[in-house]
């Protein structure tokens, strides 16, 4: 095949030059463009963001079983991740806290895992939403999958996780909000992407700053989502509810038998979100019955003015400034601060 003059260079007389030059120039081009991309988004106010995935959760989960590990474990979903700050908890109680709450899923699979497959003997503070108490399907959610996958991981997973966390914590371009399809959607909507309003810290706490988002839009979206959840709800029948309560009690006993303890908390929700939750899963029918049967301590935010006076900008989560105060108030109400050395 004849090589046409405009496609060849007299300097590329052999394959060594050709592919070496292609690779080096390709790599250089990539580094230059990536560097420019990184600088551009940092100038727009973006900072490296950690992904809330199995990797980082598993690292923290593994630390729970280690000697010298945390004395408090926080379970729940996004409300626990946004409303309770482990650093404040440590400062107020003197005890290290591990955030094992998983956004959008029931804490019961994780509680069962800690009860049955862990040596943890400290305090578990478990945020229990009415739907996790009263609705079916807990074993199919993300928390159940992460627990199953956690116990199957090999040594290569831990190395991969550490490498991934390093990259996520170092570079803005790894943030999912800057993926091509998200940017394309932003372009079609005529708006620039915004930094996440609730970025995750390395301890999995997510300080939410609602000034970074359109709060009215977010509240409406959350309300719609809550309506979908309520519409799809399949509340447990009497026998199933009783069975679930019995299962939860077994988990609690499993922890207590090792010298640990469990406190179940109902974290705040406000306005229409609270009304929807109350209508779908009335407190008297579910939470109060649970509180009456369990041997674990329970705490409902509505019973304590110091916990129920906070505003939830999006209907179900606190702003990070309130989260600090809320965490201190929670420590006070639970009496945990008394154990501080």
């Amino acid at each position: 095949m004849t090589v046409r003059s405009f496609t060849s260079s007299s300097k590329e007389r052999n394959g060594a030059d050709r592919w070496r030059r292609t690779l080096i120039c390709g790599l250089l081009g990539t580094v230059i463009v990536l560097g420019a991309w990184e600088a551009f988004w940092r100038a727009w106010g973006f900072a490296p963001v950690l992904e809330d995935d199995l990797g980082i959760w598993a690292v923290i989960r593994r630390g729970v079983d280690r000697a010298g590990g945390p004395a408090i474990v926080l379970l729940g979903a996004s409300r626990m991740q946004l409303d309770v700050d482990p650093r404040i908890l440590r400062a107020e109680t003197g005890r290290k806290a591990a955030m094992l709450a998983i956004d959008g899923s029931s804490p019961l699979p994780v509680l069962a895992d800690l009860a049955g497959r862990s040596s943890f003997d400290g305090l578990i503070i478990c945020s229990l939403l009415p739907q996790w108490l009263a609705d079916g399907g807990e074993d199919r959610g993300r928390s159940a999958r992460w627990v199953r996958k956690y116990h199957r991981q090999k040594w290569s997973f831990w190395i991969e996780t550490r490498l991934s966390l390093f990259l996520q914590g170092s570079f803005v371009f790894r943030y999912r909000g800057l993926l091509p399809d998200r940017l394309w959607r932003n372009f079609l909507e005529g708006e620039m992407p915004r930094p996440p309003y609730a970025p995750m810290r390395s301890d999995r706490y997510r300080p939410a700053d609602y000034r970074l988002t359109d709060i009215a839009q977010l509240r409406a979206a959350r309300l719609d989502r809550q309506r979908e959840i309520v519409a799809a709800a399949k509340p447990l029948g009497e026998a199933e509810f009783a069975a679930r309560l019995a299962r939860i009690e077994d988990m609690v006993q499993g922890i207590r038998n090792r010298g640990g303890s469990v406190i179940f908390v109902r974290l705040p929700s406000c306005g229409e979100t609270l009304e929807l939750e109350e209508a779908a899963w009335p407190r008297g029918k579910y939470w109060d019955r649970f509180a009456a049967t369990t041997s674990a301590r329970t705490l409902h935010f509505a019973d304590h003015p110091e916990l129920s006076s906070f505003d939830c900008p999006d209907g179900s989560h606190l702003d990070h400034r309130d989260a600090s105060s809320f965490t201190r108030a929670l420590v006070e109400v639970l009496g945990l601060g008394q154990d501080k050395p």
Partner: peptide, 23 residues
């Protein structure tokens, strides 16, 4: 190999960028 070197390099860079930016 028939492509000019700068085009080949650009292709490699585009592929690498895609791999880096799309996790």
């Amino acid at each position: 190999a028939l492509m000019p070197w700068w085009l080949r390099s650009a292709v490699v860079a585009v592929l690498l960028l895609a791999l880096t930016l799309v996790p």
